[in-house]
Design a protein around this nucleic acid. Structure first.
Lengths: 164, 164
DNA sequence: TCGCCGAGTGTTACAGTGTATCACCCGCGA
DNA sequence: TCGCGGGTGATACACTGTAACACTCGGCGA
C-alpha cells in the first residue's frame, strides 16, 4: 500500500487511496475481473492525489530502478479502470483522477477543476442530470456518455485570496 | 469564399460558412481586431463541416502546392477564434467546430456528438445553466468556464437505424 | 524619410498524448 | 503436455500542442 499505512486507514490525507483499493477489489470480485498488480499500482498512484495525473506522470511514478513501467501499460490499466468506473478521465486536461463516489451512473457527475491549485473535486447534481435528460430528449439525441467539467477557483483558494 | 457562393447565400448546405464569416467580420470590427486571411481561411474550413476538425486536418486542407500552412499557425488562428467565441473546442475529441449560435455566454451550451456519423450539434439549455450555477454555488466554486459534451446517437442516425 | 514598435505569420524543434503491433509470460483447461 | 487467452513488456509511430526565433508589414513619432 503506501508508506504510512499504519498512521491512518480511513479517508483523508491522500485522496483515500485505501478506500479506492478496497472498492476496486470488491468490484473486480463481483464482475469476475482481474485486479492485477499493475492495475492496483496505477489506481494507488491516481488515488493518492487530488490533482489529475497524466499517463506519463503515472508511468514515471511507478518506475523504479528495478522496474520500468511503460506508458502503454499505464494506458491499458487506465482503460480498464475507467471502464469499471474506478477512475475518470478529465478531458480538458488529458489526465486522470480516481473516482470518489461509488457512483451509480446517471448521478449527474460534475468535475470542479481549480485554476489556481489544480485540485479536482467531484459533485453530483440529480437536477442537472434531469434537465440534461429533458434537453437531450427534446433534441432527439440518445446519450451514451457525458462529460461536465467546470474550471474556476475552488472554495479553498477563494478563502486564501480573500484573507490576503 | 467558396466555390458555389452564388447558388446560395443563406444557411444550409455546408454548415453555413458564409454566415460564420459575416459574424466574424462584424465581431472583429466591433472589437477592433484583425480578421486576417489565415483566420478567415481557418474559420471557413471549420465552418464548412458539421464534424469536428483537428488542427492538423485544417492545416492540411489549407495547404496547397503554392502555400504551406503549418499546424502552429492554425493553432494560433484557432486560439484567436475560440477566444472570440467563433469556434469551440471539443475537448473529448481534441478537435474544433464553428459556433452556430451567436451566443451570449452563459446560455448553457451543450455539445451533442454522434458516435455513429460524427456530427456535432449544439443546443442550449438555460435550465441546465441555472442548475449548474446552484450546484457550483453550493460547492463554493467560482466558475470561469465549463464544458458539457454528450456522446451518443443523433436523431438522424436513430431514424436510419430504425427504418433498417 | 528613417527607424522603431507591435501584431501576425513562417519555420524549426521539441514535448506531451495516445495507439498499433508483436513478442512473451503465465495460469488453466483439454 | 499442449494450446489458448488475458495481461504485460517493448518498440515504433501517429497525433496534439507549445516554445523560441526570424521575418514581414503597417503605423507612428522623431
Amino acid at each position: 500500500m503506501h508508506d504510512h499505512a499504519e498512521t491512518h486507514d480511513a479517508a483523508g490525507c491522500c485522496g483515500d487511496a485505501d478506500g479506492a483499493i478496497s472498492r476496486a477489489e470488491r468490484i473486480c470480485r463481483e464482475r469476475d475481473l482481474q485486479f492485477t498488480r499493475l492495475r492496483r499500482d496505477v489506481l494507488v498512484a491516481v488515488a493518492g492525489q487530488t490533482k489529475p495525473l497524466g499517463a506519463y506522470d503515472i508511468a514515471e511514478r511507478l518506475s523504479a530502478p528495478g522496474r520500468r513501467v511503460a506508458a502503454v501499460s499505464v494506458y491499458r490499466a487506465l482503460d480498464f479502470l475507467t471502464e469499471n468506473g474506478l477512475v475518470h478521465r478529465i478531458a480538458s486536461r488529458n489526465a486522470f483522477v480516481s473516482c470518489g463516489h461509488s457512483h451509480t451512473d446517471g448521478a449527474g457527475l460534475v468535475f470542479l477543476i481549480c485554476r489556481n491549485c489544480g485540485t479536482i473535486d467531484e459533485t453530483t447534481s440529480p437536477e442537472i442530470e434531469h434537465q440534461l435528460g429533458r434537453t437531450l430528449a427534446k433534441a432527439g439525441f440518445k446519450p451514451t456518455s457525458r462529460i461536465l467539467e467546470v474550471e474556476g477557483e475552488c472554495g479553498a483558494c477563494l478563502g486564501r485570496s480573500a484573507e490576503a
